[in-house]
Design a protein around this nucleic acid. Structure first.
Lengths: 135, 135
DNA sequence: AGCGCTACTGATAACGATTGTCAACTCCGA
DNA sequence: TCGGAGTTGACAATCGTTATCAGTAGCGCT
């Protein structure tokens, strides 16, 4: 599997460009933002393709997803495959990966204590980063 | 302020019915589900009003909100005003309120350590409850 | 290099949840 | 009881996302 996008069988210019932009971006971005950036950068990629590629990448675990309070979906390329959560700036989308083994255990323990199975959790810390706060 | 819905100046039948249904419901429900339940129960309430009332209640902190992975917004009446999170069944919406002071501190500490201010967090534990798993 | 299969692309339409509009209605104080 | 201002609700509009489907282009094969 030497494909740019795991799960895909072909490597296309469009997929390489979407992934390339994600690699060059430090922060969560929406599909629409990514599409606009690609267009501004001269790349010829359809919005539909951006959505599809992001979905593929998300399914493959290559990008992390989160939702803004208004429901918009955001994506970000995350290096390691280790389980982690994010500290995200609500202004600029900048994200810092954080780990909290104790928190994971707490969540799991709570679920088990109430008889829940097939447990998952959503943990996100949002705030305003130092740069945006200073502005 | 003896209004049924804090923030409102008048008490209407519709608002009382929406709040009444929430009181009688143990679990997160979408606006559309609540609207359908009201209609099924014979209550004459418009969908727009359900949305507006839920928004009012949410702003007043009278109901908690959460989002499904598909982006749909869910609401639930929560008794105490203490800060808490939820253990939610992905099948039936049943929710159990959980508290984790240590987790709160961890989230806050992570944010402060990276210079973030005006910090908030989202913590939800989702799984399948014993009843739904047995079914 | 050329061929052909089929995965992929992208303009457009469709979709579903939510919000805006605005005339009609009704709660509530005077 | 009266009147006006907060509310209501059918409908239209919005917005992010997904489905369609004819055309395009990777890539294995010869």
């Amino acid at each position: 599997m030497t494909s740019v996008v795991p799960g895909a069988t072909r490597n296309t210019r469009q997929r390489a460009q979407v992934l390339g932009l994600l690699e060059a971006t430090d922060g969560f971005r929406s599909a629409q933002q990514l599409h606009a950036s690609l267009r501004d950068g001269g790349a010829q990629v359809g919005l539909t393709t951006v959505y599809r590629t992001l979905q593929l990448l998300a399914d493959a675990g290559e990008v992390d997803q989160m939702r803004l309070p208004d429901g918009e979906q955001l994506y970000r390329r995350c290096g390691g495959s280790r389980h982690h959560h994010h500290l995200v700036c609500r202004e600029c989308g900048r994200a810092i990966e954080v780990e909290g083994p104790a928190v994971e255990r707490w969540a799991q323990a709570q679920a088990v204590a109430h008889g829940f199975v097939d447990v998952d959790h959503t943990i996100e810390i949002v705030g305003t980063c130092a740069d945006c706060a200073a502005r």
